[in-house]
Write a protein that binds this DNA or RNA. Structure first.
Lengths: 338, 338
DNA sequence: CTGTTAGCGCGTTCAT
DNA sequence: ATGAACGCGCTAACAG
């Protein structure tokens, strides 16, 4: 490892001068700078960011905090796409990202503030934490620059990125209504997620705006899991034969509904239309292919990082960014009866 | 941020004593220790790892180096699963992981060694780099503890994790032969990946051991992309109607072959059997569902991290770990002709 | 323009 | 059993 001291020794200048030459200060002789730069290049000098951050308080590092990354999470390429988006922008900006996975056991030992100060993190992006998660609460109250994915809360040091879920869900519901569907069911996820609430509200508003009545009995809960959605919809479809369309808060649950429909010999879309949410890769390969609301998680990650760095540098004019979703129509939607 | 100095001021002891009490040295009075520990707990003290690493040279941080994480990589849940595995073990061991994504532009400015020393990384896990990647070469030659995923190279400071690709590919080929297939084609990926070579070799050996001749003309190249595999196999199947089975070096390419078969009105598996590699989620949802060789990327990540930490601590007895794959038979394989 | 001094937060001699 | 002094690699205040 080559240090400033090494460069100082070799070039004959003091550590201070070397530091200033390298950091582009203009109070250093041009020739001196050239000599130092040449030496740095030759020896492949890179500043030790840890040492730098100790004095400047700027670690050039942000954290990406996600809920417990277990084996099962691997299916969730939403998180991964967000991650890729973060990675791309963070690199461009000369920062690096550290992956933080919460686990309940860990939370007992370390507070959010500790995790941040341990490594001088300049900011944090949070995704997938449940509403009541203590880390989330701490992040919102604290003064560490934070960007939330899909959790619409903002304050002095907190911003968020999300998609126009409200509009896009309403659009999907109204689309179904326009096709002629009158009994449109909703498969919701668990109540720990902010998005469940938003999507549910939007579903109800969509119905209203389409002139349809809201019937609380047409709501199922699938916990964002295929298996649970499958079982829930199996029962549900049996006892509610009047339902001709299902809007699901996630594609994974839509797969469960699709499976249940097949089990019940219901033809999709002839007997039952299905719309999911996320546009996961699978939706293009099921049979029938699945209509869905497409999110752009990569963009969420990228723009979220952008926002975070703005908050860190105090150069942000706004505290939230909305990415546009798109309604993607495939084979799983049609007029009732075909 | 609460520091050792703060604790010293509050408890009335010196910084040195506080440091030793917290680090479990036994040359400190029990009462003193209790007082200090209580204060630390109360103030939620956490050591600043950056400062620690400056003096101990142990940053408690490893890097996960992957090839350019672009928007398209998001489909690749192999990488994500490896990531999840790393995350799980790294956390258990009190380490943290930093995500490093290479890009050719970045490589011009920074050498591998620089990336490591910049943040005092204790070790690196490398996945998905091409054979000729300069970072990979540097990693192997250098003295930074390194674990390679699916690249069988080992030396004093380099180890690897991989799966028993050799055996599992041969097993798949011999299975097809036992079903009665005589003309088994191979869809290879690009030549930049080590695994392409290994799988190709194993394919040939599998044929030989099954008493079948190796015909170089039965090899296609799909670059690990669905679209390319689709186009390559479309041509190929037209001009090689005797082929009744296709072994593919990845599921993604198997999807391309499946698409081509449908395009050509070939029934899978009656007219054409297909086996893929990876066991991606999609393989369970295609129609027909896809037989494949299942890897355990989560395990690769987890065990790889385990190995890396052993190399770092110099406690490793071996330098490589092999995870067992499994041949998963679904609907895309049958006897020729049905 | 350049060097000296100081200190970020921490662990580690070496005294006492 | 405890503390003073030093240094990790770096930037910043001040002097000259």
């Amino acid at each position: 490892m080559v240090t400033l001291k090494d460069l100082a020794r070799i070039t004959g200048y003091s550590v201070t001068t070397v530091s200033r030459a390298l950091n582009g200060y203009d109070d250093v002789n041009k020739e001196t700078r050239d000599i130092i730069l040449a030496a740095a290049e030759k020896l492949e000098y890179t500043p030790n960011i840890n040492a730098q951050s100790l004095v400047t308080k700027r670690s050039k590092t942000i954290g990406f905090l996600v809920s417990d990354l277990k084996r099962e999470s691997a299916k969730d390429n939403f998180t991964f796409e967000v991650l890729c988006g973060i990675s791309e922008f963070v690199t461009e900006a000369g920062y690096e990202m550290i992956l933080l996975s919460t686990s309940s056991s860990k939370q007992k030992n370390k507070t959010f503030r500790q995790i941040v100060s341990e490594r001088n993190l300049e900011g944090i992006i949070i995704q997938g934490l449940k509403k009541e998660d203590p880390y989330l609460q701490e992040a919102i109250k604290g003064s560490v620059p934070t960007v939330l994915v899909d959790i619409p809360i903002e304050n002095e040091t907190t911003g968020y990125v999300t998609s126009n879920q409200h509009d896009s869900v309403k659009k999907a519901i109204k689309y179904l209504a326009r096709l002629g569907h009158r009994n449109i069911a909703y498969m919701n996820g668990h109540k720990h997620a902010y998005v469940s609430e938003i999507r549910y509200q939007s579903y109800k508003e969509g119905l209203s705006e389409a002139g349809l009545e809201v019937d609380e009995n047409l709501v199922c809960y699938g916990d964002y899991e295929e298996e649970k959605a499958y079982r829930a919809s199996l029962d549900f479809l049996l006892s509610n034969p009047e339902v001709t369309a299902f809007f699901c808060a996630s594609d994974i649950m839509a797969l469960g509904v699709l499976k249940a429909a097949k089990e019940l010999k219901l033809d999709v879309p002839k007997d039952l239309s299905i719309i999911g949410f996320d546009n996961i890769l699978l939706t293009q390969y099921t049979s029938p292919t699945l209509s869905t609301i497409g999110q752009k998680p990569f963009e969420l990650g990228k723009r979220g990082t952008e926002l975070l760095l703005e908050i860190i540098q105090n150069s942000s004019t706004q505290r939230h960014i909305i990415i546009q979703n798109e309604l993607i129509l495939r084979e799983s939607t049609a007029q009732p009866g075909g």
